[in-house]
């Protein structure tokens, strides 16, 4: 196998680093993300002449930025992963249903897909949050709703083209049930397209979570997320830039890495490139 390009390697290493931090990051700070120290408010990072106890500085309530970032990162990544998986499962299932039944079932599902695709999602999110209030469960479900239509549309397309292939017909002619055909033959053959869609959807969900939390509609205090920290820092950009810059940088680099890896994965799984590798 060829070695992946340097940018992809860097992106992969960075993603591994982010996940490691999300899991074990709290060893870097003795504080909890809610611990306040009103005597040490808005302290700059220690390496810029701030309080030596706070490596990346403190926010307006004197909370340690390291502790807050680790917690926020964990929250953001968890919400994004669960949202992505939820949306993928939901969309892929509907795509298969549409491709299998055709007729009015397909038309209905595709009509809903078009409906969702024609509305800005942030509008849907704002409406739902305004009506049902905010809870973590609802928020994750909301993240799952984002992007399902892309999976459904993509799945329907690739499944339709896969079932018209002679190998699928041959399996049908063997007497296989539809369940066997889809799970053993079609799914493995269309999986690569879906995995790529997954990696492209993930950064979008991270950004959506950030945007909603930034607007104060996402993760609510005392819990926190990268977007919420970013939103907090907005008011202090002139005198305490570090509050907004750290989470912003992490969001930017994480989504960028994810996109790079997704792109590389698409090239890697592309069947037309396969012959050159084998």
């Amino acid at each position: 196998m060829r070695r992946p390009p340097l940018t992809v390697l860097i992106a992969l290493i960075f993603l591994a680093f982010v996940i490691a931090i999300a899991i074990v990051g709290n060893v870097f700070s003795p504080y909890a993300h809610t611990d306040q120290n009103l005597l040490a408010r808005l302290k700059p990072p220690s390496f810029l002449g701030g309080d030596p106890r706070y490596l990346l500085g403190t926010d307006r309530l004197g909370r340690d930025m390291v502790a807050r970032l680790v917690f926020g990162l964990r929250m953001s990544v968890m919400v994004a992963i669960m949202g992505t998986v939820l949306g993928a499962l939901f969309g892929i299932m509907l795509g298969f249903v549409a491709a299998h039944f055709r007729g009015w079932v397909e038309e209905t599902i595709m009509a809903v897909v078009d409906f969702q695709a024609s509305l800005p999602f942030i509008l849907i999110a704002l409406t739902l949050l305004a009506f049902f209030g905010n809870s973590l469960t609802l928020f994750i479900i909301l993240m799952g709703l984002h992007g399902w239509e892309n999976y459904a549309r993509l799945t329907r397309g690739v499944v339709l083209s896969a079932i018209s292939q002679p190998y699928a017909q041959a399996v049908r002619a063997l007497g296989a049930s539809p369940l066997r055909l889809y799970s053993r033959h079609i799914l493995p053959n269309v999986a690569s397209a879906l995995i790529v869609q997954l990696t492209l959807n993930f950064p979008q969900i991270v950004l959506l979570e950030t945007a909603l939390s930034f607007l104060g509609l996402g993760i609510q205090p005392p819990s926190t997320s990268l977007g919420q920290i970013l939103g907090d820092g907005r008011d202090y950009l002139s005198n305490a830039w570090w509050i907004a810059v750290w989470p912003g940088t992490i969001i930017f680099l994480t989504t960028l890495s994810m996109s790079i890896v997704g792109d590389a994965l698409r090239d890697y799984l592309d069947p037309t490139l396969k012959r050159q590798r084998t």
Binding site: Q165, P166, Y167, A168, Q169, A170, V171, A173, L174, H185, P188, N189, P271
Partner: peptide, 13 residues
């Protein structure tokens, strides 16, 4: 049973 024309697409890759 049936055998198709194109042996390249008739087997699940």
């Amino acid at each position: 049973q049936i055998v198709f024309q194109d042996p390249y697409s008739a087997l699940d890759p």
